[in-house]
Design a protein around this nucleic acid. Sequence first.
DNA 1: GTGGTCTAGACCACA
DNA 2: GTGGTCTAGACCACG
Lengths: 122, 122, 122, 122
Amino acid sequence: MLLRLDMASRTPIYMQIRNQVMLGIASGELAAGERLPAIRALAEQCGVNMMTVSKAYGLLREEGYITADRRGGTVVAGSPGAGALSEKYAAALRIIAAEARLAGMDEEEFAALCREAYKGGA
Amino acid sequence: MLLRLDMASRTPIYMQIRNQVMLGIASGELAAGERLPAIRALAEQCGVNMMTVSKAYGLLREEGYITADRRGGTVVAGSPGAGALSEKYAAALRIIAAEARLAGMDEEEFAALCREAYKGGA
Amino acid sequence: MLLRLDMASRTPIYMQIRNQVMLGIASGELAAGERLPAIRALAEQCGVNMMTVSKAYGLLREEGYITADRRGGTVVAGSPGAGALSEKYAAALRIIAAEARLAGMDEEEFAALCREAYKGGA
Amino acid sequence: MLLRLDMASRTPIYMQIRNQVMLGIASGELAAGERLPAIRALAEQCGVNMMTVSKAYGLLREEGYITADRRGGTVVAGSPGAGALSEKYAAALRIIAAEARLAGMDEEEFAALCREAYKGGA
DNA sequence: GTGGTCTAGACCACA
DNA sequence: GTGGTCTAGACCACG
């Protein structure tokens, strides 16, 4: 699990870390029960502040994607699976769909693109 | 065209305005050539500062969704249509797809949701 | 002499008119002594306000490119030829040269581009 | 890096700042990777509002001349170099060339002036 | 510390 | 009338 952080991006670093860990879990690269690197280790490896990594882990914990294990480490949680997308992501999807429509894509092209994005995380 | 702004949201107000205007254009509620409300008028209507609306309009202009006619007013541009989603939105789509996968949705459910989002803007 | 005005441009319309008349004179398309269209006629032809055309003509008159003739018309003046570029244009040229340098052009390429621009107005 | 701003100029202050920073990068006075003054610091130094400097930095960022490092500060970007002048600057060059022609300069004189402008930023 | 966002006024250029 | 620019403050998110 190697993180690629873009310091020039508008997306906050902690969010980039959170996103990439989440993507790693979704793709199966990070299996349920697998242990994540310690905060200090990951911070050093990425050249960022420990607080930044801590914030990302905290977010992932709140979302239920990871949990603290008994010995003080952090492990990937078994996915609970709410069965539906949260309203936050649904709203983002509507915006992306509108952008696609304005870019000239028809419904079939957009659906294919979405399937591709879904499979890409496999 | 009525805008609904959430002052408590993490999304900046100017971006909320930009998104809703863009959604309005995509849905056809705002037709090409149609005139948008004047910056001051929209600012007053939304209870927001002029500069905030100005920033949203500036963004939309840069993106090519609207054009400022020098003879006064801002009008909806005819969409040229790049034909593809920008990498920025493609990356966001990958994240949403991963969230959907972790929420327990299978590919078919996700594709249906995406089609719904696309048609929703019709 | 047909003017092509872009209402969506950031360049004011009166300046677009001024620039195109000046370019017409430089290229020889408008010869010294030739009569320019009346303000009202040009305004109607371009679909702009008379005041706008008047402002452009006023500018060109101040710069010495055109003069009022005895019968109330406007004619192209014989070029006086200061022999040097005004500081305003020299400054603009420095900025363009810097942009070219940052775009990766070397001195030869830039000089060739400048000669092309000079000859283009022939 | 000292900026000289002309408050009486028709050129907006934010554009003057943008131009001078760009000229500084082109001349090598500001090297790639070098850190620019903080927005607030530059604003105070120039006796200008923060937002004005912010707008200039935003422009330079969009143009790819600088990048905002999330770990604090704004740095000069390594120039990618499109290899050609944008149409906007090419049009401005045509206008300047025409002005030079009307000022009585011949092609050689103009080319020499352009080389001078190019080398001036060295 | 940094940049990002926002407010409530103001003046100006353009058409 | 329109949009563009600017000021002098303020609060917030990020690292």
